[in-house]
């Protein structure tokens, strides 16, 4: 076990006129090496949940346990977890402040004591991981990059401190499809090759369906589903739609076929799965 949110509630402006309960009695366990997608519509408490995960917020009720230890009772554990969890908010490029890409990326690793050649190597590797050429980008101003390039530099700056867990809030928003795919394959590599734990929040159901191994669905501050993508997109479609979420177009189309009596066997999450399923059915016929 890695992270355990035990019966956690969080209320903004507690005991004030504008008191808002953002999370209600959440119980969530996240294990090492998981790839989790968190979905839910705007205002359902996703961002609050992310901020609790790495101790940026302290729960109003309940405990955040890391390996069984309450992080808010143990300063050292709290420091450790912040270093170990790379948290990327939406539009991370808004936090840029350095004059060159390489200085921007160096900020994190410098803070944990890297210098000289080792620091330079970290910058090189991080840029490579996000698909940007070190020599072409290192001296450019991060403020004069295109939107997609900025996003990738921001991700590189998180990768540069080599966190064990990556928490990514809408990482691909407004990236073009190919940069998006590139970034997703980087994220997949981090999960498969480097055994990192990935927690991704996104409104993009195609991404969630294709990548993650477990989906947590939130509504009004509560976890209402927690299951594999297959199960969620097969058995809980109506529930998803009733809370304003949608299916990936391909999943939706195959589900429509099933509705009119075609023997589509299970939830189809990718184009490749749909192709194989249809070819199989054509052959049978």
């Amino acid at each position: 076990m890695l992270i355990h949110l035990k019966n956690v509630s969080y209320t903004y402006n507690l005991n004030m006129p504008f008191e808002t309960e953002a999370l209600k009695s959440i119980d969530l366990m996240i294990n090492r090496g998981e790839f989790i997608g968190i979905i839910g519509h705007t205002g359902c408490g996703k961002t609050t949940l992310l901020q609790l995960l790495n101790g940026l917020l302290e729960p109003t009720e309940g405990q955040v346990l890391i390996d069984g230890i309450n992080i808010h009772r143990n300063k050292q554990k709290l420091r450790e977890i912040r270093k170990n969890i790379g948290l990327s908010f939406q539009y991370p490029e808004n936090q840029f402040f350095e004059e060159t890409v390489s200085k921007e990326i160096a900020f994190g690793p410098k803070n944990i004591g890297l210098t000289g050649e080792e620091l330079e190597q970290r910058i090189k590797i991080s840029l490579k991981m996000v698909g940007l050429d070190y020599n072409a980008y290192k001296d450019r101003s991060p403020f004069y990059l295109s939107g997609g390039e900025m996003r990738r530099v921001a991700l590189a700056s998180i990768l540069a401190v080599d966190p064990e867990i990556l928490v990514l809030d809408e990482p691909t928003a407004s990236l073009d499809p190919q940069s998006c795919n590139k970034l997703l394959s980087v994220i997949t590599d981090l999960y498969r090759k480097y055994k990192k734990t990935i927690i991704i929040v996104s409104h993009n159901m195609e991404i969630i369906a294709e990548l993650t191994k477990r989906i947590v669905v939130m509504e009004k501050g509560e976890i209402v589903m927690d299951d594999t993508p297959k199960n969620i997109f097969q058995y809980s479609i109506q529930r998803l739609e009733s809370i304003g979420l949608s299916l990936p177009p391909i999943t939706h189309a195959m589900n429509e076929l099933r509705k009119i009596g075609k023997p589509i066997s299970s939830a189809i999450l990718t184009v490749e799965e749909a192709r194989d399923e249809i070819l199989k059915l054509v052959e049978k016929k």
């Binding site: 839910g40 519509h41 705007t42 939406q90 809408e170 928003a173 407004s174 409104h203 159901m205 304003g244 979420l245 949608s246």
Partner: peptide
């Protein structure tokens, strides 16, 4: 690009 599926629709 910042909206949930319902907002997009």
């Amino acid at each position: 690009s910042m909206l949930d599926p319902k907002g997009r629709k």
